[in-house]
Design a protein around this nucleic acid. Sequence first.
RNA 1: GGCGUUGUGGCCGAAUGGUUAGGCAGCGGAUUGCAAAUCCGUCUAUCCCGGUUCGAUUCCGCCCGACGCCU
Length: 324
Amino acid sequence: MQVEIQSNRAACAKALSCWFLTGATAGGKTQVGLHLARLLNAEIISLDSMAIYREMNIGTAKPSPQQQAEVPHHMIDILDPTESFSVSRFREMALARIDEIRSRGKEVLFVGGSALFLKALLRGLFEGPPADWGFREEVEAEVKKYGEEPLHQRLRVLDPLSAHKLHVNDRRRLIRALEVVHLTGKPISHWQMEFDHATRAEDCRVFTLRHPRAILHERIANRVASMFATGFVDEVRGLIDKYQNLSRTAAQAVGYCEVIEHLAGRRTLPETMEQTLIRTRRFARHQETWFRGLSECEFVELAGEIPPEKTAETILERGRARAV
RNA sequence: GGCGUUGUGGCCGAAUGGUUAGGCAGCGGAUUGCAAAUCCGUCUAUCCCGGUUCGAUUCCGCCCGACGCCU
């Protein structure tokens, strides 16, 4: 345990020495990131839970091949859409990439909006057991029969602290908490206590692009419209033809989920587009909730049309000014 | 022009002579191996005017709008 904390600390320190560019979806991270990477002589590590999938290009608004050729990118196109993924795998792989990039004498810039991944990098992850899907399905079946209440009841005995923190209806976390005691004999709250060291924004370089909400909504509308205009539906059709089903994680992606329903004939195209728009907005809102809550995040307010290279320069200036 | 139906919050949609469903969207929060997921919280409206009534969103009349039918 002591060793784990040590290595966790070391890993966090390593991550904290990198540059980060984050922000809600459709906020212009890709463009700014490219400029910033050039200014820093950096390579980019994607901080995005869906861009890791091959063949999911249009709907994830992945950087184009040309953009990826301009600056070396990592953690993009590393999984088939049938493979599942997890935060911890992301973290492990990303940490390895940091070393690799540094060994070339280059700077590291993370670009992306997956907030949980960001937090895992900045604050660490306890060395807990991976998901046990057999166990989860068993418990899931119980919930179906008896509801969440008995689950919560059980957790109150095994891990009162977590039970107190979790809402009765928060089935996923209830199950994970149970899973951890079941697998390790120790409550998840015990493990989690060790890893919540917040860093002040001034002591790191986590820049968070932010637009006024109305403008962000406009940008989202434009992005969704252009996705559908450039063959998003065909992309998803291709995936389904080839793989039938996407992995548990890939299938959750905004837009993909909706288009799959459409291709199955359960939804018209206009409904699908509307639903994709709505879900993208909700996604963006949740992302911003995350960023507000992470002390590491420093907001870069973008009122009006600011050219990406200008924003990159602003960030560079601010980031260089501090000793990290 | 006549007759009929109808008018509930941004949208959908119940109900009721007095205790003002619900859903969606929006907004806020949570978030440690499914995270672009998931969970929680929040929003208080009955077209206008008049009448009946202790009390009207609910009953009556009228106005306006919508829809339908007829001439």
